[in-house]
Nucleic acid binder design. Structure first.
Lengths: 346, 346
DNA sequence: AATGTTCATGAAAACGTTTTCAACCCGTCA
DNA sequence: TGACGGGTTGAAAACGTTTTCATGAACATT
């Protein structure tokens, strides 16, 4: 296709009008068999590829959605996007993608761009689904969207697991193994409402068990000095025997940091994650975690969006089931006889 | 913006023609200050957002690129896409994304879709850059593109590391540690020309050292029965003492499989990877690997594409530097006294 | 006072489609 | 034979922009 073959060229070559070409392209009305064939030949010969800009402009349908996630570098989002892609490919939708890096301003910018592209809908994970300028913008523009991973209190459509219940389930398992002092290492609450909700579940589970909340360490998502932060809490008189990571990436970093501190997982400290990224099962010690069905979440989000596009009302809450995945990183609480210290020498 | 505010509405409200609105929007020609302000007010009041379809159609510029990778679930690609996204955001480009799942037919389909969207260029990783229908299609359409990770023999523009040299460097380090029998676990050659090139480097390094090539295990990317395949090779009379994985995901799976076989890494068998995905540094044993600058590759690919779009000629080869990252998975060859067997009992 | 020059603006064409409307050709039915 | 109807087709409008061209006004130059 020599850089700009248009429907007009096809029409000329086939000796018909552009209307006819358009018709064989979209094929709803009846056309004479030989005409159809001539047109098809011309299309083939010229390597004609319809220009979606023209088509979309006229038809007011782009068959394109926008997907916004905090970062593709967290496998949980990459997996979800993969799910979305699969569903989109099947349904004939294209995907515009952007990452916010957990930043509200970049969320805004991305949404703005998506809207100018006339996407038919959006799937997104935002920092805070109950207080989000970009979601306000979407509401005002009356643009269909579905949140994924976010679990707002408000009426916004979302697909996720029940974060509070899931975190609670996780912590209950920790407690059941005899741990009495359980800390949490969480992604920044301001950057992740999920982190906040999981903390809520964590506290509830501990409260139910009559246990105090352990230390809470809030960390940035790409924090390289995690060991230092942890050291502070692990060298007290009564350090936690288990740490609940608000997501798998955090949990894996925690395990690494503990090892750097000379602590053994799970012999000295147990660590659990949240998300169920595939890699957690491959590492050693394997990561005990709470599995979200990431790919299914993506697919469900898209299905939900299609529903909205079809004009169906919002529908039910869309909470998907989570599961627990056991792993070597979670063991019974160590006997209290000899609390471990951070460094052998002191 | 009430679902369809157009430049015409803005013009009407501001009491000017649409040409004038367009001009303040794009702002190259001079306009009277008060006119400009009135228009700007109208835009603000109506929440007007220019429709890119119209704009792109007329201007023949979409400011959009297409990105095609085998799978976002492999962090090496996710990282690269993240790099592309950063560069795109800076340059004001939008990103259409698709995954091929290592399948040539899906590569075709994705490229076809991208072209119909009138992307200005593409960045892609294909199964085989020297024999690819989808690249042929791009060449024929005269669409600008840059390969990333692929390293074709032919004249196609690419950005990557030198796979052969990098694999060779990796294997030289293995050999330097006393390993005499080095196997390779590789992604399917048909699905990954990188895998093929790395195998080439592996063989060259062994040949240089006067060593025979060890067993080669080709695996699918989502192979769950890796342990079975490996068992076959690890239970011979003279099993390899080191395994070179063609990428980090494979290497991590190998480590896991070896553990399932009752073998210790690195005491019984050393394992190395290729890619340098972040997670490899977090796991235990940490993965010795050859680091590709994935994010930089993405950024460089986009820079290169921009160059092409600006009409600059192809330019130099674009081979980025790789580095070696040590890790616990690679140790000295075990003394040959007592070759390990797969299972304790037999 | 006549003639340029510049500046600000509007009218209209154009981008590549889809879609409405009308027209034509043919055969069928009364 | 004349009206009717279905099956095919074309002409032209429309989608929301950008851009060319033309116009008029204000101003400076002779």
């Amino acid at each position: 296709m020599a850089k700009g073959t248009t429907i007009r060229d096809v029409a000329a070559r086939a000796g018909v009008s552009i209307s006819t070409v358009s018709r064989v392209l979209n094929g709803f009305t009846s056309i004479a068999p030989d005409t159809s064939e001539r047109v098809r030949d011309a299309i083939e010969a010229l390597g004609f590829r319809p220009n979606r800009l023209g088509r979309s402009l006229k038809a007011a349908r782009t068959h394109t959605i926008g997907v916004l996630v905090p970062s593709l570098r967290n496998p949980v989002f990459a997996d979800c996007v993969a799910g979305i892609q699969i569903a989109c490919a099947v349904a004939g939708y294209s995907v515009l993608i952007a990452s916010s890096d957990y930043d509200a301003e970049r969320e805004r910018a991305a949404v703005e761009t998506f809207l100018s592209h006339q996407v038919e809908g959006l799937i997104l994970t935002v920092a805070d689904a109950d207080d989000s300028r970009c979601l306000d913008a979407l509401d005002e523009a009356e643009a269909p969207y579905v949140l994924v991973y976010n679990q707002p209190c408000g009426p916004r459509p979302f697909v996720s697991v029940d974060n509070v219940a899931a975190a609670r389930a996780m912590v209950e398992r920790i407690v059941a193994l005899g741990h009495r002092r359980v800390g949490m290492v969480a992604g920044r609450f301001l950057q992740s409402d999920r982190s906040r909700l999981r903390h809520e579940g964590y506290r509830a589970a501990l409260a139910d068990a009559g246990l105090p909340s352990g230390p809470l360490v809030e960390v940035d998502f790409a924090d390289t000095r995690l060991a230092q932060h942890l050291a502070h809490h692990m060298t007290t008189a009564d350090p936690p025997t288990a740490l609940f990571g608000s997501n798998d990436m955090v949990a894996l970093a925690v395990i690494r940091a503990l090892r750097d501190l000379g602590l053994s997982v799970p012999d000295d400290v147990s660590v659990t994650g949240f998300d169920g990224v595939e890699i957690g099962a491959l590492v050693s010690p394997s990561l005990a975690t709470l599995v979200q069905p990431s790919r299914a979440l993506g697919e469900a989000a898209f299905a939900r969006l299609l529903d909205q596009l079809a004009g169906n009302p919002a529908g039910e809450p869309s909470l998907l089931a989570f599961t627990f995945r056991p792993g070597e990183s979670l063991g019974p609480a160590p006997t209290r006889a000899q609390p471990q210290r951070g460094h052998a020498a002191c």
